[in-house]
């Protein structure tokens, strides 16, 4: 079954073709980062306006690139939530209408299911059951993945997502938007031991996260220190990054011990962070466990993961006909196959 996947939950328009038995055929992505940079954050209305302009041209590009035709597509999948409602609605309305016109099965996919299954697009892939750490600008989740559609959220952030903390802290430090990756780059030259920042909820028995207090601690630090000094900037960045990563790694290792699961999928924009990968690797090796990552370009939002998750669900007989309502808030716990 050849499945078209459409992702439009935030500030990237992604489309892809996946065929079961064959694999990923092609994928195309348009990132709106430049549009939102001038505003210092994602403007939902502008994101929606951009999605409706880019979606169909991207699908045209996808078909040309893969040398496939519309007539060959046998199923359609789109991101139904969570995300920005107006942005989600563009992909949902288009996908369901295209499916209606071509009389094809269609399914709405949970964006985080896309992320946590994305390492299954790679050669080196985990087998069910496994643990998933999803860290992005919008989410920080530890999930127990029993099988397709059987997920238990073990921990999540009570306030800011990890990537959001990176971006907000970068903004406090005067870095350009989106600052998270710039802050991580700056941290490479810094001394992570120079400033003692809190490790929120580190010693709590549960697997919850909290990152908003850390951002406040950095704000206080910035007031005291001279940010014009490059060394100070790098040391603050390194100290902040170490604090976030320490908590992410500690909670993930705790989850490995609690569940006994030896395979950990790491996905989402922050999963590209080098320090996170190094620290997690060290910790997991000690426990005899192993990490699985999607390729770098699939760490962030993309259509490939939606086409893939959609293909699995459609192959299992799931369809959502005619209804293109979206779910801006949607817990993974609610999912079934």
């Amino acid at each position: 079954m050849l499945v078209l996947g459409i992702e439009s939950s935030c500030d990237e328009t992604g489309v892809a073709l996946y065929e079961n038995g064959v694999g990923l055929i092609a994928h195309v992505l348009f990132s709106q980062v430049a549009t939102h940079a001038a505003y210092g954050g994602v403007v939902p209305e502008l994101a929606s306006r951009d999605h409706i302009q880019k979606l169909l041209p991207l699908i045209g590009q996808l078909l040309t690139q893969s040398q496939r035709t519309l007539a060959e597509i046998q199923g359609i999948a789109y991101t139904r939530g969570p995300g920005l409602s107006g942005a989600l609605l563009v992909g949902a309305a288009f996908a369901q209408s295209l499916a209606f016109a071509r009389k094809l099965p269609c399914v709405g996919i949970h964006h985080m299911e896309g992320h946590l299954l994305s390492p299954l697009l790679e050669q080196n892939q985990p087998e069910f059951p496994f643990l998933a750490l999803i860290v992005s600008g919008g989410h920080t989740l530890l999930v127990k993945v029993q099988a397709l559609g059987d997920y238990e959220v073990l921990g999540e952030s009570l306030d800011d997502a990890a990537g959001e903390a990176f971006d907000k802290t970068a903004k406090l430090m005067g870095l350009a938007y989106p600052g998270g990756p710039l802050l991580a780059k700056l941290a490479e030259q810094g001394d992570a031991m120079r400033y003692a920042l809190p490790r929120p909820l580190l010693h709590r028995a549960d697997l919850m996260f909290s990152f908003s207090g850390l951002k406040t601690a950095v704000a206080q630090l910035i007031d005291k220190e001279d940010l014009r000094c490059v060394k100070v900037q790098a040391d603050i960045a390194a100290s902040f990054q170490a604090a976030v990563i320490d908590v992410l790694v500690a909670k993930t290792l705790k989850a490995v011990k609690q569940t006994g699961l030896q395979q950990v999928v790491v996905s989402g924009g922050v999963s590209a962070n080098v320090w996170l990968r190094t620290q997690l690797q060290a910790g997991l090796t000690q426990l005899g466990a192993k990490a699985f990552y999607p390729r770098l370009e699939f760490c962030t939002d993309n259509g490939a993961m939606i086409a893939f998750a959609g293909c699995l669900r459609l192959a299992a007989g799931q369809v959502s006909e005619f209804d293109f309502s979206v779910k801006p808030r949607w817990s993974l716990n609610e999912l079934r196959l």
């Binding site: 929606s48 979606l55 563009v90 949902a92 309305a93 288009f94 209408s97 209606f100 071509r102």
Partner: peptide, 15 residues
Amino acid sequence: RMAAGVAQGLAFGVN
């Protein structure tokens, strides 16, 4: 935007 998305999907689907 919904009307545009649906019109696009339907029209593209049947050429």
